[in-house]
Amino acid sequence: MNNLHVDSITKSYNNKVVLSDVFLFCEKGEIKGLIGRNGSGKSTLLKIIFGTEKADSKFVKIGGKVIKNLSDGRNLINYLPQDSFLPNNISIKSLIYLFLDNKNRKVVLENEYVKPLLNKKKQNLSGGEIRIIEILLIIHSKAEFILLDEPFNGVSPIVKEYIVKYIKKLKLTKGYIITDHDYENVINLADSIVYLQNGFLKQINEESELIELGYITKNYLQH
């Protein structure tokens, strides 16, 4: 199960094509950055790969296994949504116990950011604290491919830096596809970048290509 192969993804809403015959390939040990303007379909693409959003057509394969729905992707693909997904009214410790197996649980329970929060409930935590717990849950799950949709939402710069280093440290064991509204976060983390525009996915080799595509300005790049 060393690669994630996404092919022929087409999706349209009300006759507007959001994704057009999208192809994406990610290997274990690789961090693929997915960028694009707001509303370009980045989250939709990740949800289709994960299996929670229906596509007009799709082909997702991990290793030799074709993933047709959410259940097929169990322990193979996990997805971090943009907004918080932790259930409330239950302690963080219990949520970790229910979500992770023995081996991975220990690492998260002993994490410096998580340890002081174990007996608290979601409603008593800040957005940044919730986010780091969610990221650690997802990246320490059994899944071999991790889809991170705007993981740095509401996270302070110091925690952001910690997460970037943490993912880089663990990247050999899993494959990652990451999106973020701040493209610098993606550039810092990703081994390769793909840009989604008008439903088509384009491989980015030089940052200057993003100027030509109208994603950033020349001044932004110099800054």
Binding site: F50, N69, L70, R74, Y79, P81, F85, L86, P87, N88
Partner: peptide, 14 residues
């Protein structure tokens, strides 16, 4: 709490 579904989706429950 529709987003809480994702906790269970990630456990393979649809």
């Amino acid at each position: 709490n529709s987003n809480q579904y994702y906790y269970y989706f990630n456990l393979g429950l649809n």
